[in-house]
Design a protein around this nucleic acid. Structure first.
Lengths: 109, 109
DNA sequence: CCATTATATAAGTGTTTACTTATTTAATCA
DNA sequence: TGATTAAATAAGTAAACACTTATATAATGG
């Protein structure tokens, strides 16, 4: 693990919205359109955040029909540290469950 | 620990030169003038990095005569995680010992 | 007191960041 | 096929960042 890699990794985490994204992903795999609801953010903004997280190898993506399902990269060497770090952060007010209650949860099939 | 605090903390670490500074501090307390040698960096640049680290509560300073001695803040909640993180990074080529050999190590008294 | 030394601060600059809106790509479905 | 939906990409912008040089502050020592 060199300094450049660590710098990129930490920079990818060091953002309020990306920490929220990672916090959500620590519970569930989700798609972009769900994050736009959860974070009240435009679709390109979410998309660009996901690209940063993917470049830093924090997340993985899986295409399923129209959707792209994003997950935490559980194989990353720093995954245990990431989980610990996320555990220190409070639960977001808007939950995936509240999206489901509003019927906004996407079911990808 | 809220999202803003975590963001500031991680942003403070997410820099190549500040990671080096923290790596050095994990072994020794040091002053600004030593870092200018160790990092081959101007004094104001080092000074500004230290201010960022101090604002994020990663380091503490102690004035001693003309010098300011900087140390890791061992009382920080994330100190154990920081130490683990630093342990993953390689030792810098230029060491405090090599400074001593050149007679550039400051002895503050 | 004056020169030196250690550090801090100020002001300026080029680069990066996190967004925006507009458009493109690609898959689904009526 | 054509409309809709999910996501990516492009281009533009304001703010933050990491430096630079110049200067100020403050302590030491001759």
């Amino acid at each position: 693990m060199d300094y450049s890699y660590m710098e990129s990794y930490l920079k990818a985490i060091s953002d309020h919205n990306r920490m929220l994204i990672l916090k959500y992903l620590s519970k569930d795999s989700l798609c972009i359109c769900e994050f736009t609801e959860l974070l009240d953010m435009t679709q390109p903004a979410v998309s660009q955040h996901m690209r940063k997280l993917k470049t830093a190898e924090l997340v993985t993506e899986e295409k399923r029909g129209r959707w792209t399902i994003w997950s935490l990269n559980v194989r990353h060497a720093l995954y245990p540290m990431l989980i610990h770090l996320l555990s220190l952060l409070p639960e977001p007010e808007i939950t995936v469950e509240s999206l489901e209650a509003e019927g906004k949860k996407v079911v990808c099939e």
